[in-house]
Every structure is written in structure tokens, then in C-alpha cells.
């Protein structure tokens, strides 16, 4: 049996690599202005697993890539426009808008790059959407937005758009560390009847085709993503849910503590890449 296993491995090594679909070496500059770091050295905590981290942009076709190079061609920017209106619109019992407290949306540049983030008063790690809802409920007297849906994902796209080009830089130490560890455990935990973890596909097999899909590193720096497949903006937790479902597992819910922890961990695997959302994917 050992002999057989070795033969199989030898057979694997001598396979012609003709069909191998490596990530490409293109560079991404948006609106001939914003330079996006789409490949860089892996952060220290990841260096046992990989040397280089890459945006999912490198794994998409030239046509899909091109849609992200100009905001007029990026269908995700329509939702950013919608969120700009919401930014200035008063809502809730306090009659306040986001702009009343935060000024221009552009002034929020850099915020998205540090989320998910420890919130001292609440004693928890919060995603950007959780923080937005805290403002809505406690400062505006408005209803919380549904997680990863409609207005929430549009606003996340706006806050991402104004941070494009800045390096993702989430803190993983201090009070956030235990949540980060929880997220790491979830990343490496195999789930479902197919018994696969995030790492099975996005760490061990990025660059490989799985049927018609070109596996990326599963980075989240490009979120929210506009997907040509469902022609809308997709949130990070919705993507996680789809990937877990595809292992024939019971998924966690968008907004659940498990997905918050997983978002912190997966985001930290992209520390050093540029904020890129809203990106375009298939």
C-alpha cells in the first residue's frame, strides 16, 4: 500500500502542467489613479502557510478584471451612489444622517481597512455592519439594517470605496486575539459530508481549477463583491455561507458570532493587500 501511494504521488508530480491555471501577473489601477496592491508578502502570522497573498482579482478573466479598472464599468458603483444618498439622508427618531456626525463620506477613508475591530465599550469584536447598526439604533433612533442585505451592503460598499488603495490592517492581538483564534479554528475546521475546510480549497488548492471554478485564496479585501452570477453586491458572510453550504454542511448565519470571528481571521490573512471593494467577480 505504501508503495502504491508513492507511485500515485510520482504520477502526480510528472503530470503535464498544461491545464494549470496560475494567477496572472496583471496590475490593477482604478480610474488611472488608485493603485491597488493585489499581491504582497504574507503577514507574519501566515508565513508558515504561504509566502505571498493575492487578491481574488488575479484569478478572474481579463474581461472581469477590466470591469474593475474604471468606476463607470464597475456595476458595484451604482450601489455606492445609492449609499451616498443614504449617507446624507436623515433617518430615525433623532432626525440625523450619517453625515451629521461623520461629515463627508470621503472623511471615512481608512475606516474599512481596520474592521473587524475590537469595541471597548461593547466588549466585543465588531464588523463594519455591526458598527453601522449601532449608530443607527443608538445615535439615530432608527431600525437596524438586515445583515448583508440592501442598504447595509450598499453602505459597506461606500465605506470600502473611499478606502480603496489603503492597506488592510486589522489588529489580531490584544483584546481581539481570542476572537481571532476562534476564527482561525473555524477556518481550519472541516465541515459537512464533503469534510472540507476553508484551507482545503483556499490554502491547499488556490490556483487549481475545481470543475469550472478557478480557486483563489478566498481573500476578502475586495468585498463587497459585485458578482456577474447574481448581478448584485455580495457580502462577506453571504460568501462564507455559500462556501460552507457547498461542503454539504449546516451553515452559520450572516451576522452570527462565528462568522464575525471568521471574518476577522480571513481579513487578517489579507493584511497588506489594498482595500479593493466593491470588486467585480464571477
Amino acid at each position: 500500500m505504501n508503495y502504491k501511494a508513492i507511485t500515485a504521488i510520482a504520477a502526480m508530480l510528472t503530470l503535464p502542467l498544461a491545464a494549470h491555471a496560475d494567477p496572472d501577473d496583471d496590475t490593477l489601477v482604478i480610474n488611472e489613479d488608485i493603485e491597488i496592491v493585489t499581491k504582497t508578502a504574507a503577514p507574519a502570522h501566515l508565513q508558515d502557510a504561504m509566502d505571498e497573498i493575492m487578491s481574488g482579482w488575479h484569478f478572474r478573466s481579463d474581461e472581469t478584471q477590466a470591469m474593475e479598472m474604471d468606476d463607470f464599468d464597475n456595476p458595484g458603483m451604482v450601489f455606492v451612489e445609492k449609499a451616498l444618498v443614504a449617507w446624507d439622508t436623515a433617518d430615525g427618531t433623532e432626525g440625523k444622517s450619517c453625515a451629521d456626525c461623520h461629515g463627508a463620506a470621503d472623511d471615512m477613508a481608512g475606516v474599512k481597512a481596520t474592521y473587524p475591530k475590537w469595541n471597548e465599550a461593547a466588549g466585543e469584536v465588531r464588523t463594519l455592519q455591526m458598527q453601522m447598526n449601532d449608530c443607527r439604533e443608538n445615535r439615530m433612533g432608527a431600525d437596524a439594517w438586515k445583515y448583508d442585505a440592501g442598504a447595509a451592503i450598499d453602505m459597506e460598499a461606500l465605506l470600502s470605496a473611499v478606502s480603496r488603495g489603503l492597506p488592510v490592517n486589522v489588529a489580531i492581538d490584544g483584546p481581539a486575539q481570542s476572537t481571532w483564534e476562534q476564527g482561525k479554528d473555524l477556518y481550519y475546521a472541516r465541515t459537512g459530508q464533503l469534510d472540507l475546510s476553508c484551507a482545503s480549497c483556499h490554502e491547499e488548492n488556490y490556483g487549481n481549477m475545481i470543475r469550472a471554478d478557478h480557486l483563489s485564496q478566498g481573500q476578502v479585501n475586495g468585498f463587497p463583491t459585485y458578482r456577474l452570477k447574481n448581478t448584485k453586491l455580495n457580502g462577506i458572510h453571504s460568501r462564507f455561507k455559500g462556501c460552507v453550504r457547498d461542503t454539504r454542511a449546516e451553515t452559520y448565519k450572516p451576522g452570527s458570532p462565528e462568522f464575525v470571528a471568521l471574518e476577522l481571521y480571513v481579513t487578517s490573512r489579507g493584511n497588506g493587500l489594498s482595500v479593493e471593494g466593491p470588486s467585480v467577480r464571477n
Partner: peptide
């Protein structure tokens, strides 16, 4: 045969973490 492989087991029904109802989630 292949410890830790990513290939699914096609005739095993026990021992999974969070088994789902096919692809419904």
C-alpha cells in the same frame, strides 16, 4: 489510503462536523 486528503468519502455516513441536508445549508 490518503491521510488528511481533501477527497470526500463516498460511502461514509458517520462522524461529520455539522452535517447538512445535502446542499441546502
Amino acid at each position: 489510503m490518503f491521510e488528511d486528503t481533501v477527497m470526500p468519502a463516498y460511502y461514509v455516513i458517520d462522524g461529520f462536523n455539522r452535517p447538512g441536508d445535502a446542499y441546502t445549508g
